[in-house]
Design a protein around this nucleic acid. Sequence first.
RNA 1: GGGGUGGUAGUUCAGUCUGGUUAGAACGCCGGCCUGUCACGUCGGAGGUCGCGGGUUCGAGUCCCGUCCACCCCGCCA
Length: 600
Amino acid sequence: MAESLGDLVRTHYCGELRPEHVGQTVTLMGWAATRRDLGGVIFIDLRDREGICQVVARPEVSQTAHDAADDVRTEYVLAVVGEVAKRSEDTVNPALPTGAVEVEVKEIRVLNEARTPVFPIEDDVDTSEEIRLKYRYLDLRRPKMLENMRLRHRVTMEIRRHMDEQGFLDVETPILAKSTPEGARDYLVPSRVHHGSFYALPQSPQLFKQLLMISGFDKYYQIPRCFRDEDLRADRQPEFTQVDVEVSFAREETIYDLMEPLFQRLVRLLGVEVTRPFPRMEYSEAMERYGTDKPDLRFGMPITDVSDEMATLGLLTFPDLIKDGARARAFALPASGGVSGMRLRKINEEVWLGRILPDARASKRNLFTLKATEEAVAGLGKKGASEDVARRMLEKAGAEKDDVLLVGVDQPEPVAMAMGILRLAMGRELKLIDEKAYRFLWVTGFPLVEFDKNEKRWASLHHPFTSPVPEDLPLLDSDPGKARARAYDLVLNGTEIGGGSIRIHDSALQARIFKLLSISDQEARNRFGFFLDALQHGTPPHGGIALGLDRIVSILAGEDSIREVIAFPKTASATDLMTEAPSTVSDAQLGDLGIMAVRK
RNA sequence: GGGGUGGUAGUUCAGUCUGGUUAGAACGCCGGCCUGUCACGUCGGAGGUCGCGGGUUCGAGUCCCGUCCACCCCGCCA
């Protein structure tokens, strides 16, 4: 039976007891992590937020406490009063920070009983995520999850300190906002007062923060929740947290100079130093050399175009190359890797079949390998290929002796992407990635717009308020796809952790961009009328950035999924397994909102 | 919307390819013994809609069809 807390007051956390406390009578409150009943003496590992300490119940110290300990079960909530005692030399547990001491219990109160936990409250449990999410409150008892949430707290505190020191104002913006046509699908909230009208949950506070610049707030930041109703991934949740920043009279360097010291502070939380300035790379170079707009710079193996060489090599096994426009792209696997041909083919097949060409028209012909040895080159020569060209190709890709050159052949887009993925896969396979490294990279020079083949119109790559690079303005009419944006992404270890831009502050240019995006005056007025008006009321040049807090914390925590750093995340199908949201609601609730549900 | 992996005891898994007595293991749980354990030990015990529905078969955890759920990826995510 549960007992009352009474007048007991906690004096210490379990995890903080040390030899210096020996002799003190302490009162601990916590959960019974394990119980070891040796018949006469009973040990209980008591766990709280700060750690675990061993509690020992001996009948000769207190028979009632021993009797109470006898009834304790895993995860019972206990109040323990006892004296901190030094453990004898041979019973010290070096695995515990509190292992040099234990608490000789005088009184145990069972504050609450507990059902047997459905899974053990330990790190390194490989319990299915489904079960973990259903019983998330138990999952969060695991030390690793607690540590992740604590790290998240420290990160947000550090961000707030930095932004405050830099003179930024934290301003809250609406959660019930207006739907905008561009971008992700909105989460909608029906209006009870205005039947048939809807608020949208913000995808980001984009327009509000720009309006704050127009208001003269000069430096704004916020750590808001954002919502996007799109399909999910390991690094994407329907609701996620941004660090949202906007600065007046800013150019790119203003943002870099603000962000780089911030990230220096954040990795310093882990005892890591990174140097400034962070490297920068043009988008075109990132695509060219890494096959992605978010290169992982923790390892090498940059990709090179060897189309000319492959075309003149004299091997007829790559007919795709002869077809219109196919390209050959290559990188050199280090000789030390020692990856088997079989394994390589399997990985390549997964990359090409699984990701790039799901309709399975790929074959082994998509990948050509050449070992950087004279024998291999001579072997090619025997098949009628040009040895000179083979050598030139090896050299061009920077292959050293005994390296293995991987050459992918396909249409430009698939091959660039495939080789980017293959590079990453091989980097992981060969353990070339330094897991302790934090490699930041600014990627700049993104295209302003890209052609949407489905909608047959130009669409913003970033968002429609992004300023074009001034010297590219003429291209807006002649060749919009070539115009670059004043946008920048911040990449950490191959993950995009933030992105931003210098904004358009001129209403005429903004109108011109809307026109380019085939957003009619009428539509622009409907959707952004308030904003276009605002732009005409003295808008300072401004720019900003939005950081993905969940992703940042997950990388710092060494986790592969942002769900590991979110207390109550949702599944890949956007449900909450614990609360079972979303759920149906009563017809009365719907009636209030003027809504009729159409069920599938 | 598409591709992949998985779903068997409270938990993690084996068994499925090649259908055949009573579906196993470990941990956990329950009970006994045990006064220095910390993965306590030891003896005993309980515990299963094999995700769900249908089909094939003398017989289905196993084969077939459908469906649901979780995870990863593509599309999507300004």
